[in-house]
């Protein structure tokens, strides 16, 4: 007889869900559409041949005559082969290389919870944190691998200590956000009032 205990809950449920990753949708839609059209066209032509009708929009004898005249070392053949190989290699790499992470994972005490923020929204949050510092006129952040570079412009003529204040504000926001991979902060002051 089965008695329900927590250990009988599905084992998969114990592992935390992962953050969404890119799923190569654009490439898949393009390749699938090209395959569908090409394979459909080939099937149709093969059926036409089998049923003894003329090919549609293809001059079969012209094509075979031309291929009969073209040698393997023809530059056109070489270029087509190179393009096909490169395309194939690109698709294989696209399938093999993991897609870029779209979200930065945030530390979470509960192992069943995964939290993340996208780079775009992290950028917006850090822009906001910098803009709230007194004396900052505008801020624009770039989030790279493990670094956030914040370019600020100030309306002040004396900007001593401003970079430090922005660094502290960004650092504090990142401390609250608590990403698992540490992010180093770089602040550049530009525009009017630069010292």
């Amino acid at each position: 007889m089965n008695v329900k205990t927590s250990s009988q809950l599905p084992t998969r449920a114990a592992s935390p869900p992962r953050l969404p990753r890119g799923s190569r949708t654009v490439a898949a839609v393009i390749v699938a559409t090209v395959l569908l059209l090409t394979a459909g066209f080939i099937a149709w032509q093969a059926i036409l041949i089998q049923t003894g009708q003329n090919l549609y929009d293809v001059n079969a004898s012209g094509v075979s005559e031309r291929l009969g005249r073209t040698p393997w070392d023809d530059p056109g053949v070489m270029i087509s082969a190179a393009v096909t190989t490169a395309l194939g290699l690109w698709l294989v790499l696209l399938a093999a290389v993991p897609p870029k992470r779209r979200f930065l994972q945030l530390r979470q005490a509960d192992p069943q919870v995964v939290a993340g923020i996208s780079r775009r929204h992290l950028r917006r949050a850090l822009d906001g944190a910098a803009q709230r510092v007194d004396g900052v006129r505008a801020a624009s952040t770039r989030v790279g691998r493990g670094t956030a570079t914040v370019a600020v412009t100030s309306r002040l003529s004396m900007t001593g200590g401003l970079v430090r204040s922005v660094e502290e504000a960004i650092g504090e926001y990142l401390r609250l956000l608590d990403p698992i991979a540490p992010i180093a902060v770089r602040v550049r002051l530009s525009g009017r009032g630069r010292r």
Partner: peptide
Amino acid sequence: SPRLPTQILFAV
């Protein structure tokens, strides 16, 4: 259920 895997995505 003590277990409910959860994904939280933040936007600003």
